[in-house]
Design a protein around this nucleic acid. Structure first.
Lengths: 150, 150
DNA sequence: TGAACAGCCTGTACCTGCTACAGGGTCAAG
DNA sequence: CTTGACCCTGTAGCAGGTACAGGCTGTTCA
């Protein structure tokens, strides 16, 4: 199959396929007489593998590592487990940070409910105060965040 | 004050300050006779404002928008609220995606508990199956994810 | 015969939000 | 007179693609 079909079946962009080839993640395919790339079903499996890893947030260097494990089936899987564990820790940390961020944004948002002028807007006031080094609603202690509304 | 002091007081890198100036987020300061940048306390407030917004995950274009609101205090704050609401929605979506991702990684991780060879490793098997279009543990339905362990 | 159009090619620039140099100037202390 | 801290401009790099420019190929329709 040609690159367009591969991309479609792999649910990604043609440019992305070429990018993966350049990055050495996807084996370079045979070429037709006119120079067009000609892919086999194995290439589709490779692409699906990459996309699946990417959908799990695994970075390209780690995808490369996992591919190399596939090519050496006799090697110990210990490193695979560690790779996934690192990934889990990373994602967990991101989730925690973003949850905190969401709380902060909600606290900030609640300081302005009505339509008014920018100068009276609690959101801008908060941001201004924070810039001046004064305490702000959004970065208050979690307990204070809860009770900030009165 | 000079750029080093400003950066230190704003808890960021000297390069970052210059970057903000290039991007038009921070007003260009006066220059000393030798060409060194000379900042006022207003610049520090500007920098703090930017850093505070950034700590809330607000992108540079939106920081620019917020700054322009500060410069036009008579304008309606409606757009500010919408900006923050969009930000909340974006972060919320990210949190949800990452939580799902974390679940998927845990499900994947539980398919391999022991040290074995890569070919027998449940994690790699899962990834291979997914690449072949077969169902995988990690992207199973949430209910199935819970009960996958037995 | 030819014109339009989809699809492919290579190569390079762009995106975010910085970070990290290279290569050079300034200024105070020892 | 040298060392070292600080500053300057300009450019390249990171991840993971995305988006062209400029050109070739191959089919279809008139």
């Amino acid at each position: 199959m040609r690159i367009g079909e591969l991309a479609q079946r792999g649910h990604c962009d043609v440019e992305t396929v070429r990018f993966y080839e350049r990055e050495g993640l996807l084996d370079a395919p045979a070429r037709e007489g006119n120079g067009y790339r000609n892919y086999s079903s194995d290439h589709l499996a490779q692409l699906n593998f990459i996309r699946h890893c990417r959908s799990l947030g695994i970075g390209l260097p780690d995808v490369r590592v996992l591919r190399s494990f596939q090519q050496h089936p006799e090697s110990a899987c210990d490193a695979i487990n560690q790779l996934i564990d690192r990934q889990i820790a990373r994602i967990h940390h991101q989730v925690e940070s973003l949850r905190l961020l969401e709380q902060q944004l909600h606290a900030l948002r609640e300081t302005c409910q009505a339509k008014q002028t920018a100068s009276a807007c609690g959101i801008l006031q908060n941001l201004r105060h924070a810039a001046a080094g004064e305490p702000c609603t959004c970065h208050a202690e979690p307990a204070a965040v809860q009770g900030q509304q009165g």
